[in-house]
Amino acid sequence: MLFFSFFKTLVDQEVTVELKNDIEIKGTLKSVDQFLNLKLDNISCANESKYPHLKSVKNLFIRGSTVRYVHMNANSVDCTLLQDASRREAMVQAQTSK
């Protein structure tokens, strides 16, 4: 659930999603769900000459399982908050698995 909340904080920000088939899609993150499926608006393809399929597409839904990376702006992430949230999530997981 941690990264679901994390991506919710990135809504309306510009992100670049790299898929497992090497396509890189840049766009505004519009929504995210528990599977980390993403909806992007105003997209453009970083390597369009290699992958021209998405030239006319303006917004899309990405199935979470096809994502390799999501690149984002460093200043849109609160690092200490994310570290603390990770520790807290690890603690909760340890508690529930006992």
Binding site: F3, A74, V77, C79, A85, E89
Partner: peptide, 22 residues
């Protein structure tokens, strides 16, 4: 996977090994 490596500072992770690296 895919003959790749990522080196950087670990900022967050979860039980699926999803990670944020700076």
């Amino acid at each position: 996977r895919g003959a790749r490596e990522m080196k950087g500072k670990l900022q967050g992770y979860d039980s699926h090994c999803n990670m944020v690296i700076s």
